[in-house]
């Protein structure tokens, strides 16, 4: 660890969430998870300095009531934040006639209105089930390919020697903020020429290309952290470049790859714009299938409400299961 030790930790600062334990790395890398951020703040409240003046009775009462008001306020805000989602869920559990007659809050006085009818009908609706399948068919390859291609390039930028390496890397990072909108027209023409316009392949390739700058950025910084000795030892054991990559670098890159994978997965799963233009109109993903129903919002609410909720299930499950990686992934990739 000669020159590298001075250089290594610094170069991974910035946005490699789980990768950068460096406290100087700025806010993003410290946002390990929602709970962690909260926990680290909580402890210090009670530790008053020894020299702190005893507050007067009045100010203590004021502080107490202030705290109470604050708590009530936070509870109200929390309920306020939950309300739209709860409204969608309850709407999706009411019959179309009930939805058009009254608001979802009616179920609090008439719980008998709740029915799974909409969901049963939704699951028999082939357009919807097919579109869920299309979403999976787009999301899984687009995620896997970004991870694979991104880590290949990230490894090359981190540990290989070639002319102009840093400039190439700078150029790739610069592409991080190119809006997808810039590419819509040119790429649809390009895909039209080579015959993959409005195919699942086209959507996947588009997502992979626009996921790569972030993937390369994140993984290169993480891989550069790997202690040089590890790689040299493997090299002495006779490992070639490919073996080194698959046996040493990839396993060690687990946390960064997880963050990247989760971010990319959700990005593609939730995408509508790219799919709207590039997806096969015969088998659109769920976002596009639902979007087509929005024009007659009132009439299609019995499909839209449960459909939207079904499309949210996977992202929400990912959110609650992988909170830590999710937060660091979203934080790091938000520029996109």
């Amino acid at each position: 660890m000669s020159t590298d030790s001075a250089n290594g930790p610094d170069s991974t600062a910035g946005r490699a969430g789980p990768a950068g334990p460096d406290p100087r790395a700025g806010a993003v890398s410290e946002a390990g998870s929602v709970s962690e951020a909260a926990a680290s703040g909580a402890g210090s409240v009670t530790e008053h300095g020894p020299v702190r003046a005893r507050p007067s009775l009045a100010s203590r009462i004021a502080a107490r009531t202030g705290g109470g008001v604050m708590r009530v306020f936070l509870v109200l805000v929390g309920l306020f934040w939950l309300m739209p989602t709860v409204g969608l869920l309850l709407s999706s559990l009411r019959s179309p006639a009930d939805i058009s007659a009254s608001g979802w809050w009616e179920v609090f006085t008439a719980p008998a209105q709740l029915t799974t009818e909409n969901y049963e009908r939704l699951l028999q609706n082939e357009t919807v089930t097919d579109s869920l399948l299309s979403t999976v068919m787009i999301t899984v390859p687009a995620t896997v390919l970004v991870v694979v291609i991104g880590s290949l390039a990230g490894y090359a930028f981190a540990w290989m020697e070639f002319p102009g390496r840093d400039w190439w890397f700078l150029a790739v990072v610069g592409l991080l903020v190119v809006p997808v909108q810039v590419a819509l027209v040119p790429v649809s023409k390009l895909f039209g020429t080579i015959g993959i316009f409005e195919t699942t392949t086209g959507v996947v390739l588009f997502h992979v290309a626009f996921g790569l700058p972030f993937a390369i950025f994140l993984l290169r910084n993480f891989f550069a952290e790997i202690p040089r000795e590890l790689l040299e030892a493997a090299r002495l054991d006779g490992a070639g470049e490919v073996r080194l990559f698959t046996r040493v670098v990839l396993p060690l890159g687990g946390p960064a790859i997880a963050s990247l994978g989760i971010f990319q997965f959700l990005w593609v799963w939730n995408d509508m714009l790219v799919a709207l233009i590039f997806a096969d109109s015969e088998s659109p993903p769920i976002t596009v299938a639902l979007q087509q129903q929005v024009r007659q919002f009132g009439n299609n609410i019995d499909v839209l409400a449960p459909g939207a909720f079904v499309s949210m299930l996977i992202p929400l499950a990912v959110f609650f299961a992988f909170q830590r990686q999710f937060v660091s992934g979203v934080m790091a990739g938000a520029v996109k």
Binding site: A37, G78, W81, P84, N270, L290, A308, M312, F319
Partner: peptide, 23 residues
């Protein structure tokens, strides 16, 4: 509280759009 407020980040803008059409 943070979980509740952060949760909407996980869902698609399409789903959020449908939610707010209802609202």
């Amino acid at each position: 509280f943070k979980l509740v407020v952060f949760m909407p980040m996980a869902i698609s803008m399409l789903a959020a759009g449908i939610i707010f059409r209802l609202v």
